[in-house]
Design a protein around this nucleic acid. Structure first.
Lengths: 182, 182
DNA sequence: AGAATTTAAGACCATTTAGTACAAAACAAC
DNA sequence: GTTGTTTTGTACTAAATGGTCTTAAATTCT
């Protein structure tokens, strides 16, 4: 009963997610964003509201697509050891070339944008929970540390690695490190 | 032989450092910056060049003032244990309310601004070196891990803590964690 | 005191920003 | 085919951006 959309909402949202992930909120101009989403102003403002709303949507998209994938990977993983399960998070499989969107969002927007901080915390919680699940699954009771705390520590290492990775520099032997932690 | 400056260069630079540290590069508008530095456009552009040059100067200032202070603290420290020496880095003594400028700069500018990335790496190296020095000083040879790697791991934890801290959330028992690592 | 020289203040400018308005276009229902 | 409805593309806008230019003020040296 009306003109059909020429764009695919989810596809456009993924484009937005990619560019916000890569460049951050402020560094992404509207023309950049529109190009990444494959649409023009008119369609964009009608379908997505505005830039800020789109950023929030992009965070949700990252949650659904990227975080969920990691969480499922950790949940399903049946490697020999917990370390082997966690390694994908630490060996930059290409998809984290621009760091971690959660980390980027916290650093850029966290202090001034409660909604972003809240979403970021929620995603971090999911990751921590999944890490904990791995640890619990492989627990050999020769561990003297509290598992949730170890999971949180590994999560912090993950964020630290993602942040520092954006400055380049040499990569470390994360497998050895994780082994010594768990 | 000419009109004297009404502002103190170093004081203005510290103002710039503070606001860049707190808000980041892009979120700091020129009026914000000028207010923080206590000067007007004319003086600013003559004395500091432009916004980008000032940001680079601010990173150097952070290096000289904040990083150096931390490094010296670590070098001079004569606590009972290495953990006690390192704890100041992990118990947010107020000065890191806005996270760590190194970390913020890497995340915001690292991938697109090689000079920033390089300065950030250099500062991170200084911190890592100081951490290593502490570890070496307190080494009881009951450690089976390579000390430089442990120092780098602690540095990553530091960055991770600084990044995640900007989203709020509960604080962890870093003393216990460090103890278990060293 | 006067000349020389640098700083200070702010008016000014071109560009870019996010966001809006509106007319043309593309479909579905009848 | 006409009507009704939504999408699309673009011209437009108002505000904010970083940066320059000009003029007046403050100092030192002679």
């Amino acid at each position: 009963m009306a003109r059909p959309r020429e764009f695919n909402y989810n596809l456009a949202l993924r484009g937005a997610t990619d560019i916000f992930w890569q460049r951050g909120y402020r560094a992404t101009t509207l023309p950049d964003l529109l190009a990444a989403m494959g649409m023009t102003r008119g369609s964009f403002y009608q379908a997505f509201g505005d830039k800020e709303a789109t950023y929030l949507e992009a965070l949700d998209c990252y949650d659904k697509e990227v975080v969920s994938k990691t969480v499922e990977l950790l949940n399903r993983c049946d490697e020999e050891t917990a370390v082997a399960c966690l390694m994908p998070m630490f060996q930059g499989d290409g998809s984290d070339k621009h760091g971690c969107f959660i980390c980027n969002a916290i650093v850029e927007m966290g202090p001034e944008h409660p909604k972003v901080a809240q979403k970021a915390r929620a995603m971090a919680d999911r990751l921590r929970q999944a890490i904990l699940f791995v640890l619990e699954r492989y627990e050999q009771n020769r561990t003297d540390r509290v598992l949730p705390d170890t999971a949180d520590l590994i999560l912090h290492l993950y964020f630290g690695k993602q942040a520092m990775g954006k400055a380049g520099g040499p990569k470390a032997d994360w497998e050895g490190r994780l082994r010594s932690l768990i």
